[in-house]
Amino acid sequence: MGFAEEIVYLVSTYGVSLFNAMLLTLEITSIGFTLGVLLGLPISLGRVYGPLPLKALLAAYIELIRGTPMIVQLFFIYYALPLVGIKLDAFTASIIAIGLNSAAYQAEYFRMAFGAVPREQWEAALSIGLSKWSTITNVIIPQGVRIAIPALTNELIYLLKYSSIAYFVTVPETVYVSKVIGAKTLLHIQIYTITAVFYILVAVVLTKSAKKLEERVSIPGLVVKGRI
């Protein structure tokens, strides 16, 4: 069989399980990313506008996450937490690990984006009588989120790739399933080519859509100096 025929063979034989695995990869990625936004946004607000002890605590959390590999974090959650009675299945452990990891990075992206909003915007908002909270929600967040889009896109693509760490705790996502198929058929290069194309295509599509989104929500004059 030639390379192309082998690819066709793999797709026709294992297409369904590959497809399911890819869906699982997308699921892990999107849940992880959403968790990351839901946690990262409040973390960044607490880190910038919160009281001092909270600031310190959140800064420590961010350093802790950014200073260690994601896989160590996953193993902690999956293998060490049962020690204190928290037993999670592999899928849940994976999305929690990815979500907690992403929250730290996203908090930093949001923090930098909020920092890029000029101080004068604050003063203008306060001067018409808006509260601090109202200023954050009506002025700082709408501007900051737009500024953060490129960084968040990179984060999403990063998570797409690193959702594959779920392989290490035997979640049947794309890398796991292709490894199994590779071992079964010995068509390693062929199966990995298929999965690599999947990841790269999704990354390209995400990049393109993010560009579109960025253009759609872009506002004349709202540009940042320097990338974050």
Binding site: A124, A125, I128, G129
Partner: peptide, 26 residues
């Protein structure tokens, strides 16, 4: 602050809002 209007040297309009939205926000 609500009872005192402030006009800044550098305008400080809200960059993400249109002219009319700037006036409406408060």
């Amino acid at each position: 602050r609500e009872k005192i209007g402030f006009v800044f040297q550098h305008f400080n309009l809200f960059l993400h809002l249109t002219a009319i939205e700037n006036v409406m926000l408060g």
